[in-house]
């Protein structure tokens, strides 16, 4: 088992290296090179010739490509993600400020997804072809097809413009200085819509998976055996069917997290939430390449990490899987 985990971790290293090469090649595609924006005459007021020279020296722009890549990669490994073109601050520091917000939004959305998808999926499967099943499958189908930004916009129209119940942007009311429970309530009001939007799409797709997995498990011999033993329906479904049916679900769950993370780009942008996704979009508008590269590396790391987690969890939970 340990050797399996170690091997999987080691396999992730070349993957990360491959991604970093790709990202670096992308960086080189910048029209006029990575300093194009700094050299742009339009920004002459902000970047002096002297600063430009310093930047050139710093990045060693006249060295061959592979030398520059290795130097860049070595910097990354030391935690030096470069400095932002826009703010002049270290990229890692900027990401560090924003990432907790993104974790908060995606974490809550993940929790909501779990709390909704499991009960709905299980009931749907247990009462297959019931009204509830038809309703939840239809809603799930709508949920996977609805563009999240449209849903967000329409929710804003209803709950912010028409009813005035919920604030439209940010994480807290900037005009007030709330404390304690009131601050928590204020924070919750700000998070309701973003979390709903983000959770809906993943709930919709997860419900479909859970329903399918449960239907499969309910049809298996061990479920019939459990029923034949005279166990209560509750125990049969939750102990026997769910425990076995949940194994493939765990993998999907682990893969759902990076999806939420990526989806938060849109939600953070429309609700003006100061997270990493919004930082990415802002940096794209400003062509702040070091920040874009940094976020891309961190996001890739997260995707790989959760892929790894999915594989390891699957191996741990399913004793039939042999770790060769």
């Amino acid at each position: 088992m340990t050797s399996y985990v170690v091997r999987r971790v080691l396999q992730a290293v070349p993957l990360l290296a491959g991604i970093s090469v790709l990202i670096y090649v992308l960086l080189q595609m910048t029209p006029g090179g990575p300093l194009a924006i700094a050299e742009n005459p339009g920004s002459a007021g902000r970047v002096t010739a002297e600063q430009l020279e310093r930047l050139r020296n710093r990045y060693g722009l006249d060295d061959p490509l592979y030398v520059r890549y290795l130097r860049w990669a070595a910097d990354l490994l030391r935690g030096d993600f470069g400095t932002s073109f826009n703010t002049g601050r270290p990229v890692l520091e900027m990401i560090g400020e924003r990432i907790p917000v993104t974790f908060l939004v995606t974490g809550l959305s993940f929790l909501v997804t779990l709390l909704l998808a499991f009960p709905i999926g299980i009931v749907s499967a247990v009462r297959q072809y019931s009204v509830f099943d038809y309703l939840s499958t239809s809603v799930a189908f709508l949920g996977v097809s609805i563009p999240s930004f449209w849903l967000a916009l329409m929710l804003l129209y209803v709950f912010t413009f028409t009813l005035g119940w919920l604030p439209s942007f940010g994480l807290e009311d900037p005009r007030q200085d709330y404390e304690g429970l009131v601050a928590l309530w204020d924070r919750a009001r700000h998070l309701v819509m973003p979390v709903t939007v983000l959770a809906l799409v993943s709930t919709a797709s997860l419900t479909r998976y859970i329903r399918a997995a449960m239907l499969d498990a309910i049809g298996q011999d061990y479920t019939r055996t459990a029923r034949a033993k005279g166990l209560s329906e509750r125990v049969v479904i939750l102990r026997h069917a769910l425990k076995n049916g949940a194994i493939p679900i765990v993998t999907i769950l682990a893969l759902e997290i990076p999806d939420l993370f990526i989806g938060s780009v849109i939600v953070e942008s429309i609700f003006a939430i100061p997270g990493m996704g919004r930082l990415f979009v802002e940096s794209a508008h400003l062509r702040d390449y070091p920040v874009l590269m940094g976020i891309l590396m961190i996001a890739s790391l997260l995707v790989i990490l959760f892929n790894l987690l999915a594989d390891v969890l699957y191996a741990v939970l399913d004793p039939r899987i042999r770790y060769r």
Binding site: L16, L22, I262, V265, A284, L292, L296, N307
Partner: peptide
């Protein structure tokens, strides 16, 4: 297949945004 793995491990929307920003 390793190339496929690399592309699979990249956060799609982020890379698309970067590419379009780079290329105009």
């Amino acid at each position: 297949m390793r190339v496929v793995d690399v592309f699979y491990s990249m956060p799609g929307l982020f890379v698309i945004i970067l590419l379009v920003t780079l290329l105009g």
